Simulated scan of single mutants.
Amino acid sequence: MLRIGKKANIKSQDEVNVIKQRNDYVIKVINERKNTERVLDVGCGTGDLVCEIAKKGINAIGVDFSKEMIDIAKNEAKKLQLEKAKFVCCSIFDFHFELDEYDVISANGFIEYISYEELDKLLDISLKALKPGGSLVLGSRNRLFNIFSLNKFTQEEIDEGNIIALLMEAIQIVNSNDINSLIGLKTAPLQKADKEHPQTGIKVSTRYQFTPVQLINMLKDKGFEPIEIFPIHIHGVVPKFKDKYPTIYGNISNLLQNYGEGNMCLIPYSSSFMIHVKKK
């Protein structure tokens, strides 16, 4: 399993802060719940989300196996005097938890770096660790965006014969207002486990992408109830335009992000998405 340390900082309002967008969605889920007492953030990085949750008076635990990231997180929580923010340096697969312990479990920018077997194990852990009615919130790279990025990712999907299946899923999402209508929908197969992926600025050979339907079906099969998919990092223009005009690109993307809620039609144009499910 590979993890990349992360810290949510941004140099300009014209830049797109994907980490903050993901964190904000988790906060949104918490705010919409009737009651949340304990939260577990998997792959917490420098602890930005955990600290934000702790500020709301909620007990929040962050787990990450990067000691450097955990040290930064602990120092920040200490500086802010956040007694409800706790951090543990270990793999989530070695982390001790009690049954029905958490109201919310989140994992942002995590599942793209773990194997399919580890993802399956993460879902099992989450199902056991969540209270009945508890929320699991996952952030994922969006494979549907490969259709519209018009770059090497698009060419790969064409070469591998998956472009029509991805297009059909995108059409269904755009024309649907109910996540339940997507359950069981046929889509492209998962990416090959040993596939080497094109570089996106992060120097790792494997960063898995999932479509919303792939994750919905996976989570439904585990016994979770799908609640919502939410667009993250909405692209109003192709990535090549971003390289030439980053400020304009950032302004367009951040403007569109304001319309993410209630607009599933933006999912295919988003390079990431969040999925919220509940334990029955």
Rank of each mutant, 00 (worst) to 15 (best):
I147V: 14
I183Q: 06
S149L: 06
S149Y: 10
E228D: 09
E157S: 14
E160Y: 04
F145E: 00
N251M: 06
Y208S: 03
V237P: 07
F230P: 07
L167M: 13
F210A: 09
L167R: 14
G223Y: 12
N251C: 04
L167T: 15
T200A: 01
P212D: 03
I216F: 15
F230K: 07
F148Y: 15
P226F: 01
I202D: 12
S205W: 01
M168Q: 14
Y259N: 05
N217F: 06
P239S: 06
G260S: 14
L182I: 12
Q155S: 03
E160A: 05
G236E: 08
F153N: 03
E225V: 09
Q191Y: 01
F148A: 11
P239N: 07
S205A: 13
N180G: 07
T211P: 02
I179V: 14
H197G: 00
K195S: 09
V174L: 09
T247V: 13
Q214L: 03
S205N: 08
L182Y: 01
N217V: 11
L256M: 12
I216W: 15
A165W: 05
L215H: 05
T206S: 11
Q155K: 04
F224Y: 12
D243G: 02
E156D: 14
P189V: 01
G223R: 10
E157L: 05
Q214H: 14
I216A: 04
L144S: 06
R207P: 02
F210W: 12
P231I: 08
G250H: 08
L256S: 01
V204D: 02
L144E: 01
L138A: 03
G161W: 05
K152F: 02
I216S: 08
F153H: 09
E156F: 06
H233W: 04
I234N: 02
P189Q: 01
M168G: 06
E228F: 01
L215M: 14
I202N: 08
D243N: 13
E169D: 02
T211D: 03
H197S: 00
N177E: 09
N217T: 08
I179M: 03
G139A: 09
L219A: 12
N258Y: 11
K195R: 12
L255S: 12
V174Y: 04
I248E: 14
P239I: 08
G260D: 00
K203H: 07
L182C: 04
P246F: 12
V238W: 02
I252S: 06
Y249P: 00
K220T: 12
I179E: 01
V213W: 02
G201F: 10
L150G: 00
I216H: 10
N251Y: 00
E160K: 13
Q214P: 07
E196Y: 03
T247Q: 15
K240Q: 14
A193R: 05
K186L: 09
N162L: 14
Y249Q: 11
S181E: 10
K222Q: 13
A188F: 06
N142G: 08
K186T: 11
E169P: 06
P198E: 02
L256D: 05
L166D: 03
I163D: 11
L150V: 09
I164Y: 15
S149W: 12
